[in-house]
Design a protein around this nucleic acid. Structure first.
Lengths: 328, 328
DNA sequence: ACATCGAGAGACAACGTTGTCTTGGAAGCG
DNA sequence: CGCTTCCAAGACAACGTTGTCTCTCGATGT
């Protein structure tokens, strides 16, 4: 037996198709008697309206669905961001299509196109590709960027205060007597990684320490840290610009038995950072707030707000826990 | 300017509507000349087919979308599960609608209904409600359960070997000389929590230790652990049945300075467990595998596989790291 | 040269719903 | 009592696409 349609309900209730439509949509111009018959028929047939069909005919053309493209939904930062967006959407009766990109630029374009083709009302994107120019054809679908600034395309963007946060972290190390402070960073093509590096340079002025870019993954971070510390003039402190890199660095310091002698401040908090020995000092981002703000901005746009693209910066917080206070 | 339709393309290319449809769908019965003209028109108008409309008319009625309902996408277990499902779906060109339930039974029903109404081709659910009977009306939409066994409704289910895993954990503690082993568990109404408790009882036979059920959240777990250890006859070892509870227990042991004297084995691994002091011994689940298997089962069903409901159990692995080997 | 065939391309209906217009009958009014 | 007014409820078209049928025209065979 196929899914029942309005027509089936109409026949069962002995009314016209349109009357069923009216009852289902809660229009007030139906006699209580007929409405009751229709509702009984709906119940007995377990009728559910076909959203695709009504979408097609309706005037407003809203699917009440948004798309969210993140780097990796299993990463804690993305996970919390995702949850916050979902929560905002839920209060508005909107559903969320999710995609993980994993730094794959092609997948970003592919999924953005696919989601748009499904008529999502809007898109929240943590950009991975080096250029978002392809989005300029997406007129009509509001977009909000999170975590990273886009390039080649302007839209509302919600990011952490990366430069200030990174500079603050490095100044914190300087204040504890360090002069040779190493930088360990993610792919340089990621705007966020570049900003954090700028913050690092800003704080150190004309005396930067050793720098390693383009580190991807915990294992690579661990190796890079070990190499750094085996140099003839090893740094006395590390600034790691992303949570996965921070964890790799912690592993390396442990392996070398240097975790109580080399200082460490990481960008982005992570679960259990406070339970390690020493507890890890971090510049915490606020992914839940970023998510809420981004979702808010997106829904404003969907509801027709029409102003110039905004960049909203969410402040970071330095959380001193021990590893950043080891003296130089 | 509104979104262009096939009709617009047809007019621009000077062909009939149906010919455009044929070209767009790659049917071979179009002269190359016409096909080229159509493709040019598609390109110049930036035409994208309206999936809703084609869905409506097509015979197969597939939306190429599945729904995934998890406890909380920001929890590491759910996050990894989610990612694995997404990956499987991606290889099949299928998209994923996500919802977090947060132990809210009403939200489970609400989202399940909503997703179905959107004609998702299938559903993967980590059940939260105490009864999934409401799903019996969902004929036609394949469903696979993960992480927890459903009740009141039968369908393919992919779960960890909870009883055996928990029993193994407790036997591990017994082997290290412990006799008073406490159990700290989640809401008893969660089937998974009950199974792990059964494993605990099985291993201890007629001499169970102190038991605390219905613990929800890290803070509650911390409090419960402190209370336990302040009893006149405190346990010498703890078995915590869920990762959040394990972390709460670690916090409590630290606070009391007992982390090197009270043994601990937790169910479910968590990031950085190996970096704590002592590193935490766990019964690891394999959420990525659970996700892959569940997605595989769902797609089999979607493709028409029609057998009796299966229960697939994914084995757990005991990972000894230190906290579980503290002698009794 | 004529009947037959095949294949490309268009006409038309249909999917399940909602917007708009029309109908019919009851109520309201002088 | 007859006329207008009003409103519930039905008829019909339309949304953007695809399935099916039909038509046309050139190629093939005898």
């Amino acid at each position: 037996m196929a899914r029942p349609t309005m027509n089936d309900v109409a026949r069962t209730a002995g009314v016209s198709l349109k009357t069923v439509s009216r009852v289902v949509n809660g229009e007030p111009t139906v006699t209580p008697d007929l409405a009751a018959r229709v509702r009984a028929a709906v119940e007995s047939l377990d009728y559910r309206p076909h959203l695709g069909a009504s979408m097609l005919r309706r005037n407003d053309r809203r699917t009440r669905t948004i798309g969210v493209l993140l780097e990796d939904v299993s990463n804690p930062f993305s996970g919390v961001l995702h949850r916050a967006i979902e929560e905002e959407a839920h209060t508005r009766g909107v559903h969320v299509l999710t995609g993980s990109l994993g730094e794959d630029a092609r997948r970003e374009r592919e999924l953005a196109r696919a989601f748009r083709q499904r008529q999502t009302d809007g898109l929240i994107v943590a950009p991975t590709a080096s250029d978002q120019g392809y989005l300029s054809r997406f007129s009509g679908t509001p977009i909000v960027f999170v975590d990273r600034q886009p390039s080649g395309f302007l839209a509302d963007t919600v990011v952490s205060t990366n430069i200030a946060g990174a500079a603050g972290a490095v100044r914190h190390l300087i204040a504890h007597g360090h002069r040779r402070i190493a930088f360990l960073g993610d792919y340089q093509r990621i705007p966020t990684a570049r900003e954090r590096f700028r913050g690092y340079l800003q704080a150190l002025g004309d005396r930067p320490g050793p720098v390693v870019h383009d580190i991807r993954g915990e294992a690579a971070a661990e190796r890079a840290t070990i190499t750094l510390l085996r140099r003839p003039d090893p740094p006395t402190a590390l600034f790691t610009s992303q949570n996965v890199i921070t964890i790799g660095a912690v592993r390396a310091l442990r392996r070398l038995g240097r975790h109580h002698s080399v200082a460490l401040v990481g960008f982005d908090d992570f679960p259990l950072a406070d339970l390690l020995e020493p507890a890890v000092t971090v510049v915490a981002q606020h992914p839940a707030r970023i998510g809420r703000v981004a979702a808010g901005a997106l829904f404003e746009r969907i509801d027709g707000h029409d102003g110039p693209p905004r960049v909203i910066r969410v402040a970071t917080t330095l959380i001193a826990r021990g590893s950043g206070e080891i003296p130089g």
